[in-house]
Nucleic acid binder design. Sequence first.
RNA 1: GCGCCCGUAGCUCAGUUGGAUAGAGCGUCUGGCUACGAACCAGAAGGUCGGCAGUUCGAAUCUGUCCGGGCGCACCA
Length: 652
Amino acid sequence: MFHLLEERVQAAFHEHIQARYGIDLAVTIEQPRQSEFGEIALPAAFQLARQLKQPPKKIAAELAAEIGHIPGVAAMEVAGNGYLNVRFDRARYGSNLLAPQPEPEAPAGGKIVVEHTNINPNKAAHIGHLRNAALGDTFVRMLRSLGQRVEVQNYIDNTGVQVADVVAGFHYLEKKTPADVRELISQAGVRFDYLCWDLYARTSAHYQRSPESLAWRSQTLHAIEAGEGAQAELAHLVADAIVEAHLSTMLRLGVEYDVLPRESEILHLKFWASAFELLKDRQAIYLETQGKNAGCWVMPAAAFSADAESEDSKVIVRSDGTVTYVGKDIAYQLWKFGLLGKDFYYRPLRRYADGRVLWVTTDKPVNAEASVPEFGHAARVYNVIDVRQSYLQDVVVAGLKALGFSGQAGESIHFSYEMVALSPRCCAELGILLSEEDRRRPYVEVSGRKGLGVKADDLIDKLIGKALEEVASRHPEAPAEEQGRVATQIAVGALRYFLLKYTRNSVIAFDFQEALSFEGETGPYVQYAAVRARNILRKLQERGESLPDFAAELPPEAMGRQLRFEDFWQVLLAASKADAAVERAVTAGEPAHVAKYAFQLAQAFNNFYHQYPILHEENREKKVFLLWMTEFFRAQLERTLDILGIAIPDYM
RNA sequence: GCGCCCGUAGCUCAGUUGGAUAGAGCGUCUGGCUACGAACCAGAAGGUCGGCAGUUCGAAUCUGUCCGGGCGCACCA
């Protein structure tokens, strides 16, 4: 609603300025600093002042006098040195919100692919991975809420170095056979992903101590590529089991995927061979004959760097003929856009609670009775990958461009975010001994190789434990199972909010105290506001009353009378901005903006809740109005929380 | 060395793309549970927006420069 009016005012001014001054002005709209200034503010007069060589105040007065009536706008006034402040017609605004809202039209454009999570399947997920998944999943929810068609991909590097290292650990270090490992995986009391976490760290440490053992890695990689022998079998076992673990961890946070494209299929189905031919044909890469890269196929630095002088060419194919990660990524990116001329085969891997099926790629046709949906063929691709891989993402985009797919290159978006690091206090709590050098740093990088980090499931467990204490102390009479469900919802709400409240390019120095907080700007605070709104409506029923027919009992005059109270108007206004907030957040690519909005909305409601008894209100009109406000707020907040992937507990 | 990012209240962070008196949360201090359960609310204190110079009606935001910190720049991913 707010958004609609915003656009209407913007359009009216754009048109008027065009006609009156012959200027095609990009009319910007702002929120006034102070609410007394009205609902929206236009600095248009400042923008025009230079071109018209007239004082802004004069232009503003002219605009205000000449713009004419805009439906929904009650007043317009010149303020400060030339601001135009716009006040809405409150009665009309409220009545419009009361009327059934028209379905927003589906946005034009094709499918959007969002790739996120992408954890190496060789160890348990940690907080860094959680940030990736929370950002990716929330952005997906944001896009879907605007009606976009979105496909979620989670790329599985099941044949890479990291898997190889754990396989080498099992095979050489622990002398375990595939049968042994299969046994470990099926053993009830064993967390296989945790076990691999430790083994990975131990294997890496072993490489450090005896560098000659690095030969294990290349032997294992070759065995995996050949697809033969114990190591190849181990790789399958490890990767598949860990992928299952990751899917389950992410599901705890409500994160689901549509398809898991795997590197093994990119290899076996020779995706790379097709991409290689394309790259050679269009001369995007060339065979280097001299220097340190002699014998390699490389992409010239000029393709991906503005500063080509100081930048080295990027090796795409090694001198031994094997392809680098970037090469495979170019092939994968081409496939996402449907540009490769090849496709995977697929089989269903899981069915989520809502019936949605998760597919995984295979290298052979499967007798899938169920029709496989069409994957890929995206109009736009978001890759949720941390900022440290910017350079590689630039190379991938340069690859597309060099192949002549400049449109798709422009629609390839690196949705980057900063890392999650560990605060010094957090390291101390984990019993991690820091070097003299590390102790002086503001934070310490998570390292899977060193086994340094906070495991995702441990953190979730810890949060649930704390939430359960709170729930049990407040609702000792509630059945344990119910307490557990509520505590889980609160824990997930706290975690998702914590991961989302920072903007993407801010490093999170992880700290248990902050992550475990349920007060202030946190998920539980927002959940609490929603629970309170629901409580009021439930209590109403318990008293034997039913929800009034708002439309009948709140005609525009009544709406106008009630909305004269500034407090009411401000809460309503805030709640009506949900669409605008999400739209803005999508444009900015910032899930944090949605989180912030949810918090502000909750804050406004808590204040309102505290100040105005609703069920006890004597005046009928006012009571109906307050109930309507509560109901409207509840709906808006629930929608927003749903976009954030945060559930609303039955009670708190 | 080159490139990217960051520096805003004691701490952790926002700041709608150049606009009005720079905002939240935590922490500290003060007050509020016999209303719809206080995971809450109200109030107070707390700022040279890292420094300097510039651009202009107007700068936390843009440019330059310096200081401090982080991350990249593999025939690893």
